[in-house]
Design a protein around this nucleic acid. Structure first.
Length: 247
DNA sequence: AAAGTCGCCAACCGCTTTAAT
DNA sequence: CATTAAAGCGGTTGGCGACTT
């Protein structure tokens, strides 16, 4: 296809590399919309694109897929990223599942540019290992959560009703224990798009407004930069959530 | 105005995991 | 059960625009 300057113009093993052209985007979009996602190697072969399956998948997932938000990460999304990163570390794809419309790549880039540097500067405190027990607890929660995710896997095309039930399936155990329906509804009315897409954040907020903030307080302490970055020197997660993006 | 620096983001690379045979 | 191919994931790189000196 269009020969680009620089690295994009030199195919390796026959595959083109480098930035995608609008024509390529169009070809890929058309192919995926008529054949569906998956079988990326055949996409590469059959769509007329001179791109590897890997490259096609990446382009689709990160750029062409419908429903992608693109653009600025909201304060709320930022908070979710911070929380989930504290919980799971660099599990970008996992974190991305809770940010509808955002890609792992986007989140990863965002984290690196906004927080990584600060984290380094504050290394002594930020990198203090969590209490072993807490760490173990978190690991267990993650494992449970992953299992639930697996069990809850289903095609995207399967209706909203199922998506809503998945909302519960996807929640880490600790969140599922919180069943403040009223609060959830309240938040749902504030953030309809999020609840629509499985939305952990709602329950985060439920949880954080509740009494048991021990763990989360600990997580928030993980990195002072969070406070500086988000609430401009605020001193607690409560402040952050309430002041930052709940009300 | 030009040069240098920084931040952001798209895309690639290599490794791991999963599915198919 | 073993092997292989495909898909997924996280880390890294390079280009480009904005900002600073």
């Amino acid at each position: 296809m269009v020969g680009l300057m620089g690295w994009g113009s030199v195919p390796v093993q026959g595959w083109r590399k480098g930035p995608w052209t609008p024509e390529e985007d169009k070809l890929l979009s058309e192919y995926v919309s008529s054949h569906g996602e998956g079988r990326w190697s055949s996409v590469a072969r059959c769509s007329g694109l001179n791109r590897s399956g890997k490259s096609c998948r990446l382009r689709w997932v990160n750029y062409l897929r419908p429903g992608l938000k693109r653009g600025h990460i909201t304060t709320m999304e930022e908070g979710i990223i911070i929380e989930l990163h504290a919980l799971w570390g660099n599990k970008w794809s996992t974190i991305a599942r809770y940010l509808p419309g955002r890609t792992d790549n986007e989140i990863k880039n965002y984290w690196r540019t906004h927080f990584k540097k600060n984290q380094k500067q504050q290394k002594p405190k930020a990198q203090q290992p969590l209490e072993p027990k807490l760490q173990q607890q978190q690991q267990q929660q993650q494992e449970d959560h992953e299992i639930k995710l697996e069990n809850g896997k289903m095609g995207e095309a399967q209706g909203k009703q199922e998506a809503i039930s998945m909302e519960d399936q996807c929640l880490p155990v600790m969140y599922q224990e919180i069943d403040d329906h009223q609060a959830r509804q309240q938040v749902a009315s504030m953030y309809p798009t999020i609840l629509e897409d499985l939305c952990l954040p709602v329950t985060y907020q439920d949880h954080l407004q509740g009494e048991d903030q021990g763990l989360w307080g600990g997580l928030w302490n993980l990195d002072d930069t969070i406070d500086h970055t988000i609430s401009g020197g605020g001193n607690s997660s409560q402040n952050y959530y309430n002041g930052g993006y709940i009300f």
